[in-house]
């Protein structure tokens, strides 16, 4: 158990280091740097040189990577080019807002997806399954910005239930952000739930046909007990790692959905930073997203380890 745990944590650390290397050196390979991109073509050599010294770009790349990554660990994310303020200060509030949005999405979306997946899987190809799976395929196929826009069209313009676009600032109190995240979260849930429920459905169908479920049914265990004690626990185990993987999608989807709804989170900040050509800010956000992804996946794996003793022995 301890060996498996250590191995898993070590793997996550290695992945984090590689992400940092990729995010940093991807831009090193590009023509231009933070200064030339930000100052534009008209910049004089002396302006560029001054900017290079200010950002430390006159240092060798490997040394800069070490200081950049070291500062990052201490919570210093560098200085934004456009806003001339510490990135940590800009990113902090937005990160909170995005976590609120992701939190609302997961708290409602994951149980909903598990429930619908089990319902669809218990009667495969029944009318309920056809309806659920049909909607899920639509949700998985159509891009986020179209489902988000449709949500605004239906729930805000036609029905008038909720404001279509978020107008509150990024420092608004948490409960207001929870209220503001209804439609963005609904959009994310629509897609997230579709991915998870497809997996759960498939795994319920498989477990229902397994020997132990057949056996339980044949020896006369009531259907309800077979479902809750034999099928559901076993079917949900693989779903845990899928939920972890779906987080990667959620983080990417957040960028687009936040822009659709004007939600003041990290994703929209990233879009603004690209428009401003603020390389240090884009880099910091990309690294943050990568780290969040690795951590959620590590968390999902640990939960799976705790719930499923079969995973605890090291495989070959």
């Amino acid at each position: 158990m301890a060996a498996v745990l250590l191995q898993r944590i070590g793997l996550a650390l290695v992945t984090m280091v590689i992400i940092a290397v990729v995010v940093f050196f991807a831009l090193e390979l590009m023509p231009g740097d933070a200064c030339s991109v930000n100052l534009g073509r008209g910049a004089s050599d002396s302006m560029l040189a001054a900017c290079h010294i200010r950002l430390g770009l006159d240092q060798p790349p490997v040394w800069r990577f070490v200081t950049w990554a070291g500062d990052f660990l201490r919570g210093d994310l560098g200085i934004s080019m456009q806003r001339e303020r510490p990135i940590a200060e800009i990113v902090g509030w937005r990160l909170r807002n995005t976590l609120i949005l992701a939190g609302v999405t997961s708290v409602i979306g994951i149980p909903l997806a598990l429930g619908l997946g089990v319902l669809a899987g218990l009667n495969p190809d029944g009318p309920l399954d056809m309806a659920i799976s049909g909607v899920a395929i639509f949700a998985m196929t159509v891009p986020e910005f179209i489902s988000g826009t449709l949500m605004i069209l239906v729930f805000s313009v036609i029905l008038g239930w909720a404001a279509g676009v978020v107008t509150i600032g990024y420092k608004a109190p948490a409960f207001e952000l929870v209220k503001a995240s209804i439609l963005p979260a609904a959009t994310l849930i629509f897609i997230l739930a579709a991915h998870i429920l497809r997996m759960v459905r498939a795994s319920v169908v498989e477990v229902m046909q397994s020997d132990f479920a057949q056996m339980a049914r044949l020896k006369g265990v009531p259907r309800r007990r077979v479902i809750w004690h034999h099928v559901v626990p076993n079917a949900l185990l693989p779903a845990i790692s899928i939920i972890g993987l779906t987080m990667a999608w959620l983080l990417g989807g957040v960028v687009i959905v936040e822009s659709v709804f004007n939600f003041p989170g990290l994703g929209r900040l990233a879009v603004d930073a690209v428009a401003d050509q603020d390389l240090p800010l884009v880099q910091a956000i990309a690294l943050l997203f990568g780290l969040i992804y690795v951590l959620t996946n590590l968390g999902a794996d640990l939960v799976a380890l705790i719930l499923n003793p079969r995973l605890r022995t090291r495989r070959q």
Binding site: V23, G252, V255, V282, A286, G290
Partner: peptide, 16 residues
Amino acid sequence: AMMSIPWILMVMLFVA
């Protein structure tokens, strides 16, 4: 590791 960075941020990094 590359796939842990959401594609859109990867692309945005280059677009920036």
